[in-house]
């Protein structure tokens, strides 16, 4: 009877473990080891839970008192053998989990001979990724099958870097540098949320990790670097709006060579997307609907005010909003021009 109940519980919990899609898709070498420890722990847990549940259910039916039975149960005070067993067996099981975990983590943090080093900087409420050749990107682009060493820090409060498909997570802490090792194993686009409460825009502080085949990655990197150094991209006419981002990660902002008059605004749209403005502000032309900060559709037609609000947000606060926006003083004058023009055009 007891064994039957135990078997039934075990089957049910196993079904829950198997048929519910627990873990997200696997896209890194580290996740494989994490998943191994996860399933090891799951099966141990299923076994323990089945035993406990079976005993409780069995007792509930078997030892239920009959009405008007005022007698007492058997005065059993203990059983040394049993007590030793249920001290020793769980101790061994958790040590097994502990050893497996320690080994998995040690392997997960192996860097290998030539990792790709990327600096990650978090601000309220956006990510910035700096590549070794000077390229800066708001999304994390990685070549597949190459180990990456991320070096994280934060400019304001604590943030946390996580890609569920990679399984790896690390806080970005102001004042210190932390590191994280990832070896992407599958091409694709994965969410990259901030997982440490960082203020009003925390829920919207999302970026993406894009894993690309190696050649695609190299060509993206080269294009991005050319733009940064001012060499015009081969398929583009020379324009003075230096830092444009043709592969901005939001839809509807692809380069549109037919409409050259809008070039400045195009650059502005890309900057808007890349700096994560839409994480906090509503702005219809960019499809942004966040309400942490003021609606940028209502900007006054005052170029200086808009410019100042970007580089020095605390100078003149919009009514009803707090001074929580980080200053975007890293933008160049040209970038600022593009962004301001874009905003003013969109808010008319």
């Amino acid at each position: 009877m007891l064994i039957v109940i135990g078997a039934v519980v075990a089957v049910v919990t196993t079904a829950i473990a198997i048929f519910i899609p627990w873990l997200p898709a696997q896209a890194s070498v580290q996740r494989e080891r994490i998943d191994f420890v996860f399933w090891l722990t799951t099966w141990i847990s299923v076994a323990i839970f089945a035993i406990v549940a079976a005993v409780i259910i069995y007792c509930v039916f078997k030892f239920r008192v009959r009405p008007d039975d005022d007698s007492d149960g058997e005065p059993i005070h203990g059983h040394t053998g049993l007590e030793i067993a249920w001290t020793a067996v769980p101790a061994i099981l958790v040590l097994v989990i502990g050893i497996a975990s320690a080994v998995a983590v040690a392997r997960n943090e192996r860097i290998g001979p030539d990792p790709l080093r990327i600096d990650v900087t978090a601000v309220q409420f956006a990510w910035r990724f700096d590549y070794p050749n000077g390229v800066t990107s708001p999304t994390l682009r990685l070549p597949v099958d190459r180990t990456v060493l991320l070096r994280l820090t934060s400019n304001d409060v604590i943030h946390s870097f996580w890609v569920p498909e990679f399984g790896q997570k690390q806080d970005a802490v102001p004042g210190i540098f932390t590191s994280l090792v990832i070896t992407p194993s599958k091409v694709g686009r994965y969410p990259l949320p901030c997982t440490e409460l960082c203020g009003l825009g925390h829920a919207l502080m999302r970026s993406a990790a894009i894993v690309m085949p190696n050649d695609e990655y190299e060509s993206w990197l080269a294009t991005a670097q050319d733009e940064r150094t001012g060499v015009p991209p081969p398929d583009d006419e020379p324009e003075d709006e230096g830092e444009e981002e043709p592969e901005g990660d939001q839809e509807g902002q692809q380069d549109d060579p037919e409409d050259e008059g809008e070039e400045s605004a195009e650059a502005g749209a890309a900057l808007f997307a890349e700096n994560g403005c839409g994480n906090c502000h509503t702005f219809a032309p960019a499809g942004a609907k966040a309400t942490v900060g003021p609606n940028l559709g209502d900007l006054p037609d005052d170029e200086d005010y808009v410019r100042q609000s970007i580089v020095e947000p605390g100078a003149q606060l919009a009514k009803g909003y707090q001074n929580i926006m980080p200053p975007y003083s890293q933008l160049s004058d040209e970038q600022l021009d593009s962004l301001v023009q874009y905003l003013l055009r969109g808010s008319k």
Partner: peptide, 13 residues
């Protein structure tokens, strides 16, 4: 126990 085991908690914290 899941949250005590290092690799899992790195994913789930």
């Amino acid at each position: 126990i899941f949250l005590g085991a290092l690799p899992i908690v790195i994913h789930t914290s």
